[in-house]
């Protein structure tokens, strides 16, 4: 079943068009990677799917419902989680408070957080620490955990490995795989780290000049020659 259907989506910043008619579909439970050069519209696509940037044309359907004109708040309440680039956590709130902020509609926040922390053991011993005092990798884990606290059905994940040390990247991969095993969550993952995107994705879409130009299986992402040919970014 398709949970996200995007049709001829256009968007941009002011008068500068970035997305030039993106069409894609994501099945429930899938992890779909989006690969592309800098400036090709990967982050713009996620921001438009979340409603943070208005679509200038086309449509976005989530779970059969047209959400093209809905606000980001309304989309979040429908079950779309967004972990943006730059691991934006609440720097002056503690880890525990950050997680509570994510429990928007959860009747028992403590129970929800305890369940989420099973997949994030590193955060368990940091609960009282300020969000801004965490390392980059820990902040990324916190951003992911906070997103999961809202029990999203679809997660939009924007470059989670950006500026993160390799040892934590492995931990993020393991965590995401564990999350997938425990929960029926769908993920749209924008990433430039080829190993990361290949390890997690069921299929990968290539985004070039604001359009999806090709779909490749994850094995191809590990083949740098092929990626060089398709995307020119290996």
């Amino acid at each position: 079943m398709t949970i996200l259907a995007v049709s001829r989506l256009r968007s941009g910043y002011g008068r500068i068009p970035i997305l030039a008619g993106v069409t894609l579909g994501v099945g429930e439970g899938e992890i779909v990677g989006i690969l592309g050069h800098n400036g090709m519209g990967k982050t713009t696509l996620l921001r438009t799917l979340m409603g943070y940037l208005p679509a200038t044309d086309g449509s976005v359907q989530f779970d059969g419902r047209d959400i093209t004109r809905l606000s980001p708040t309304a989309r979040a309440r429908l079950g779309i989680g967004y972990v943006p680039q730059g691991r934006e956590i609440f720097a002056t709130l503690s880890v525990a408070e950050n997680l509570r902020m994510g429990c928007l509609r959860q009747p028992d926040a403590d129970q929800t957080i305890a369940a989420i922390l099973q997949d994030f053991p590193r955060l368990t011993r940091l609960l009282d620490r300020m969000g801004g005092a965490l390392s980059g990798g820990e902040q990324q884990l916190l951003a992911l955990a906070r997103c999961l606290c809202g029990a999203p059905r679809l997660i939009l994940l924007d470059e989670p490995t950006e500026g993160i040390q390799p040892s934590i990247i492995e931990e993020i991969i393991e965590t995401l795989l564990a999350v997938r095993r425990r929960r029926p969550v769908t993920i749209v993952l924008v990433e430039q780290n080829l190993n990361f995107i290949a390890a997690l994705s069921n299929r990968i879409l290539i985004l070039q000049k604001g359009e999806v130009t090709r779909e490749i299986p994850p094995e191809v992402a590990r083949d740098r020659t092929m990626i060089d040919e398709f995307v020119g970014m290996a």
């Binding site: 979340m50 943070y52 606000s71 980001p72 708040t73 979040a76 309440r77 989680g81 967004y82 943006p84 934006e88 956590i89 609440f90 720097a91 002056t92 709130l93 408070e97 509570r100 902020m101 994510g102 928007l104 509609r105 906070r146 997103c147 809202g150």
Partner: peptide, 22 residues
Amino acid sequence: RFGRVVVAIRENETRAMLIGYD
């Protein structure tokens, strides 16, 4: 909970909006 959201919005309004608070 209301107070925590108010402080979170002060910290980062966009972030709070994207996790579902108006």
